[in-house]
């Protein structure tokens, strides 16, 4: 087995007023490259926190996360930002599109951050939106789009830099079953075609059929 992420002895504490709570408890986890891993568990189990730490949005209190053998939390802020930009596509329950930017402008941002030109970035943004069935919506503001369309724009934005890993926190949480199926089929398609690694948090047991592996969490522990 070829691990893209190795999480070892990971703990995460939060200070709430005067007491400390342990939200992640001695997590050890291997994420296999090119596979779809589903993380399930009740609300408050620590799923999001784990995903944030894997994506360097948050730091562990102790323990390590290796990405292809490299300790990503030992990198400085600038290197982490660059690493996220290049290797990680984030998708959340909410689309978090930027309101003032048109759909394709939203999608091209990570490409611009990579110092690609406006022209080149805009071109690949439009292509990607086309693949997601949004060729008619490229020049629209996010608030002119339906919920399903907004989420697809967010997915295009996560994929524009062709990252190795997609970290998705309840990506279909706000979608109806039709849109859910579209999104999951699309994920599966690029997982098959491009061998991208997916870590998807979900409540929805129906998604299990898309998973190569599932991880169950409860109260900060991995239970199965």
């Amino acid at each position: 087995m070829n691990s893209i992420f190795t999480v070892s002895d990971l703990n995460r504490d939060f200070k709430v007023t005067d007491k400390t709570i342990r939200v992640l408890n001695n997590i050890n986890l291997e994420i296999e490259e090119g596979k779809v891993t589903l993380i399930l568990g009740p609300s408050g189990a620590g799923k999001s926190t784990l995903l944030h730490i894997i994506g360097t949005l948050d730091s562990p209190t102790s323990g390590k996360v290796l990405y292809k053998g490299e300790d990503i939390h030992s990198l400085n802020d600038k290197k982490q930002a660059k690493w996220r930009n290049k290797n990680i596509g984030f998708i959340f329950q909410f689309h978090y599109l930027l309101n003032e930017f048109l759909a394709y402008e939203n999608v091209m941002l990570p490409s611009l951050f990579m110092n690609k030109s406006f022209k080149e970035s805009a071109k690949s943004a439009r292509e990607l939106l086309g693949e997601l069935g949004l060729e008619e919506r490229t020049e629209h503001k996010p608030n002119e789009l339906s919920g399903g369309e907004q989420q697809r724009v967010a997915i295009a934005r996560a994929l524009i830099n062709d990252p190795d890993v997609i970290l998705a926190d309840e990506p279909t949480g706000n979608l109806d079953s039709k849109n859910t199926q579209f999104v999951m089929d699309f994920f599966k398609k690029i997982n098959n075609e491009k061998k991208k690694t997916f870590i998807i948090i979900t409540h929805n047991e129906e998604l299990l059929k898309y998973a190569d592996r599932n991880v169950n969490m409860k109260d900060g522990f991995i239970v199965a």
Binding site: L57, D77, K78, K86
Partner: peptide
């Protein structure tokens, strides 16, 4: 606040 957080997830560093 939210936009700044999102920009960070997309790969902007603090200095950006």
């Amino acid at each position: 606040t939210t936009e700044i957080g999102v920009l960070k997830t997309l790969g902007l560093a603090q200095r950006d």
